[in-house]
Design a protein around this nucleic acid. Structure first.
Lengths: 229, 229
DNA sequence: ACCTGAACACCGTTCAAGT
DNA sequence: ACCTGAACACCGTTCAAGT
């Protein structure tokens, strides 16, 4: 319990040091193995051979810990690519989405927490650079990056939540059924579109949304700040 | 559900019946008073003078219960308005956002769960009707409604989470600081835009995003389904 | 300053047993 | 068929007490 002598420390070399870095590293390991929902104070404390209370010296709360784990993961986002600026931007956002798809429970964290870690900043910088290359006005780009990342994140949350749970496969069916079962008298537009509302492979829809958003952002000037509304 | 004698019902008028409706009603009440995070099986069971296990006869799990509560809340969304189709659509989405803003924790539910309740269908129908009125091609409208609701929901999640927690006010500062503290050598575009990245009142940004999305959706045809990719 | 055990106040879900 | 208590396997966070 009191490692006064050096040999005592050598006895458990696998145990990470109780530092913020050590805690985050353990958290990443648990997350990769079992998902973020297992990244809890108590579980991490067990992992680090200590009590949950000890972690509060290094980490504000569970949410802050999750945000740190997420930023660590964003290191995997591929920021460099080849081709047209639009294709490269699509690739960057696709890579971001892939990372979140691979860890669906983290996508939730991305939406709820305001990210500000180094990897996230690198991602924002990369997106801004590509929008600049594409000739988007700076003011529009500043606001567009938000919407682009938001939709990518939200798409990952949806997709991820759907895939994660066991009963999720047929939850989509329930949705499709409730759309099909709708009366053309009360819901004429839904009835007219039918399953087209949920049709199409995810990637194709995502690409259309990306193009639509980008086209709109390029063509829509920001409101005059002088206007009261 | 089978009230054989009237006096029996009179004896405990405050206690809702143990039916799906009763459970959902109690859930809505708890949610309004204390937020969805308090809408738990155990808490509801206490409210209904029974054990948590009993609820599983009527409700699949906690998530399904939350979805039911959310649909109940969507009754408050104002679907009819005056003016231009675009202004009316903006009003409908604004009303949807307001409802979620008022109950931030429910916005999270809206993103994670695939909604299919009657109020949600009414909302989708209303949006489709307005897009139709605005002359958007049906195929584009079918996909645009998804993106429009998604961004509104995601915005509510962000805003809501920010306002909800105590330390949230200065979380925005942390973000602003980390943007301001960025080196113009490593992150030139972020540095150039500075606080403009997080600038502007929420509603103005939301309106710009709405217009950009709508303009883009109107101008971006869906990919030819004949194409392999 | 850092670490700890114990405590407080909770969770979701399952299941054998009752009615 | 419906309802129940008890059990299993967990949570986040605080705090007095130790080193």
């Amino acid at each position: 319990m009191a490692p006064e002598s050096t040999y005592n420390r050598r006895e458990r070399p696998a145990k990470p040091a109780l530092t913020r870095e050590g805690i985050v590293a353990a958290a990443v390991a648990v997350m990769r193995a079992e998902g973020v929902e297992r990244v809890t104070m108590r579980r991490l404390a067990r992992e680090l051979d200590t009590g949950a209370a000890s972690l509060y010296v290094y980490v504000k709360d569970t949410e802050e810990l999750h945000a740190a784990v997420l930023d660590e993961l964003l290191a995997e986002v591929e920021l460099d690519g080849a081709g047209d600026w639009r294709e490269r931007l699509w690739a960057v956002l696709g890579s971001y989405r892939s990372v979140l798809f691979a860890h669906p429970s983290l996508a939730r964290v991305a939406l709820v927490t305001r990210l500000s870690g180094p990897r996230f900043l690198a991602l924002v910088e990369a997106v801004l650079a590509l929008l600049d290359e594409g000739g988007m006005a700076p003011g529009q780009a500043a606001w567009a990056v938000d919407v682009l990342l938001l939709t990518a994140t939200a798409a990952a949350v949806e997709h991820g939540s759907r895939r994660e749970r066991p009963g999720a496969a047929r939850e989509h069916e329930v949705m499709a059924e409730s759309l099909a079962g709708v009366s053309s008298r009360t819901h004429p537009h839904i009835a007219a579109l039918g399953t087209d509302l949920v049709s199409g492979p995810g990637p194709v829809r995502a690409r259309w949304a990306f193009d639509a958003l980008l086209n709109g952002a390029l063509a829509t000037p920001r409101p005059d700040p002088g206007e009261t509304r």
